[in-house]
């Protein structure tokens, strides 16, 4: 009798829930945003007083509301995946539509923040804090927009595998925000 094929043995990678490639993406995104946050605090070392003054022009209250919006949206996406196991298609779709709606509200609030700051003459050139602010939160907002599109596709083609991949992307956006928000708005 031949030994079982080594390729068929379960390895630690097989323990990961969902799609392996999505985890590769999650780690990649964490590295990119993580490097950005470390660079942000690294540049702050040279001018802590300037950063403290510049931070007073940010909008922590709307950003705090956006934190609640995003984690609630993540909750709805996680519930959609749970409903996926029991194939409750209508409930899955409504959960995802609600998650997407909250993502839309997040972008509207972010748009208000950007519009107000640009209206006050604050651009990427004004101070290094704002360079990082526009770059990191703008890049994150682009991910929110992409995530809304992905959730829409998953609501349409809602197989369990699609739900796992789509909601994992959405949670990655959530994960990045819970690191971004405190560093930029509270510590910057």
């Amino acid at each position: 009798m031949s030994a079982p094929d080594a390729d068929l043995q379960p390895g630690s990678l097989d323990e990961l829930p969902g799609d392996l490639m999505m985890w590769v993406l999650i780690v990649s995104e964490l590295l990119v945003f993580g490097a950005g946050l470390a660079a942000f605090l690294g540049v702050r070392i040279a001018d802590p007083a300037g950063f403290a003054e510049a931070r007073t022009h940010l909008h922590p209250a709307p950003a705090g509301i956006n934190t609640i919006i995003l984690i609630t949206s993540g909750f709805l996406a996680a519930k959609a995946l749970e409903f996926g196991a029991s194939r409750r298609t209508t409930t899955i779709r409504w959960s995802l539509v609600a998650a997407m709606g909250l993502g839309g509200v997040f972008l509207v609030i972010k748009g208000y923040e950007f519009a107000d700051m640009v209206g006050n003459g604050i651009t990427t050139e004004t101070h290094p804090l704002f360079t990082f602010y526009y770059l990191l939160t703008g890049f994150h907002a682009a991910h929110v927009l992409a995530g809304i599109g992905i959730l829409a596709l998953v609501a349409w083609k809602n197989t369990v595998r699609n739900l796992e991949v789509g909601t994992a992307f959405w949670h990655m956006v959530d994960l990045v925000w819970v690191l971004l928000f405190p560093v930029i708005y509270l510590l910057g």
Partner: peptide, 15 residues
Amino acid sequence: KARVILARYLGLWQA
């Protein structure tokens, strides 16, 4: 917060 999202939203409690 990151731990909670990883464990419960992303399902790492299973791994």
